[in-house]
Design a protein around this nucleic acid. Structure first.
Lengths: 112, 112
DNA sequence: GCGATACTTAGGCACATACCTAATTATTCT
DNA sequence: AGAATAATTAGGTATGTGCCTAAGTATCGC
């Protein structure tokens, strides 16, 4: 039961950094190897690696190494825990907001 | 345009802390005054105030002072930006599911 | 085998964050 | 007015985070 909280905490902490969020955004499109992920950033490789480790510890991404190349992927359902929490927060206030016609961008998916 | 990113960044950073998240959870139920919010925590008041300031800067909450009492409320739609981002990160599989009208809401992600 | 490639490990520095106590301000109560 | 209450400001510490360089390990291609 407190597992959910820990999971959520790790996920939010991981996503609180712009670099890591950018990595997640990139991986949402498709898996990529470490050097691919590193390319867009003007950051030393070990620094990026550290971010990748954080993402992996938060179980947002997984990786597997083939030869000397490590491929990272976004874990399917990795963000579910966040969705769940968000859902819980839209209790009375959200309902009120809905009533008042204040926009609540619910689970309306976007096309890319 | 980069406003969205900044906003998202502030929100995620604010939510990355368990104390602040607990405050948000509390405020999702109803507005509350500072001392009410502080009560559940074994934390000095100024420490909690700092968290409240972070939440306010992230525009997750608003406050107004009447006399010597400050009442904090969750800003309606405060979490929309997160919802929006989350929607964008849905994996290709999720996009497909959306198209098909399958709702992939998580309940309890347990097993690995 | 040998150099190039793709990470990985180790160690270190600077600044941010989360907490504290003590003192202050501004209201409200008696 | 004077004491109690609610919040705020000021200032300090300890740990965490994000970044770096330098050096190491393990493959791959010739």
């Amino acid at each position: 039961m407190p597992k959910y909280r820990d999971e959520l905490d790790a996920v939010l902490r991981a996503l609180a950094d712009p670099t890591r969020r950018a990595v997640v955004e990139r991986l949402a499109k498709s898996p990529a190897v470490v050097s691919e992920l590193a390319a867009p950033f003007s950051m030393a490789l070990p620094s990026l690696m550290q971010h990748l480790r954080v993402l992996e510890n938060a179980r947002l991404v997984t990786s597997q190494k083939h030869g000397r190349v490590r491929t990272m992927s976004l874990r399917p359902g990795a963000l579910d825990v966040l969705h769940l929490w968000l859902g819980e927060q839209r209790t009375p206030a959200a309902h009120q907001a809905d009533r008042l016609g204040i926009h609540m961008t619910c689970t309306t998916p976007k096309e890319t």
